[in-house]
Amino acid sequence: MMIGNFPYIVAMLLVAIGIYALLFKRNLIKLVIGISLVETGVNLFLVTLGYRTAGIAPIYTYAPNAKPMVLPTPQALTLTSIVIGLATTALLLSFVVFIYRHYGTLNVREIKELRG
């Protein structure tokens, strides 16, 4: 099946939407969602990078099949990146919880002890 550059376009679109959310949204939760979108876009980009049309899973014992294999390295990178993403999202959300407890709001405009 030919899908060409379509996955790359989707990945970059996800990154762009995430950056848009980071720049223009005021709700802290939406900022975290924006970061997660960027991360998903980057992960999708990495997986797409290693994809070969009609490729098989990169396991050593499958090698004699003479079929093209999907590249294993980008998958390893993506796996690591997903784990790191989980940690950063959890940490960000826990900061949001504490901010809400202290200020009673999630609006960035209303949380402004640190200015100037």
């Binding site: 990154v15 980071l22 802290l28 900022l31 975290v32 970061i35 960027v38 991360e39 980057v42 980009f45 990495l46 990078l49 980008p74 990178l77 990146s81 790191i84 950063t88 940490l91 960000l92 900061f95 949001v96 504490f98 901010i99 202290h102 200020y103 949380i111 002890e113 640190l114």
Partner: peptide
């Protein structure tokens, strides 16, 4: 127990994560 430190930590973490993802994209 300080609201200010949470605010700083969130802001820093958001920017650190974004910069980390840019690095990852460049590596890709």
């Amino acid at each position: 127990w300080q609201g200010r430190s949470q605010e700083a930590a969130f802001k820093t973490m958001a920017l650190y994560t974004l910069s980390g993802l840019f690095v990852l994209l460049a590596i890709g």
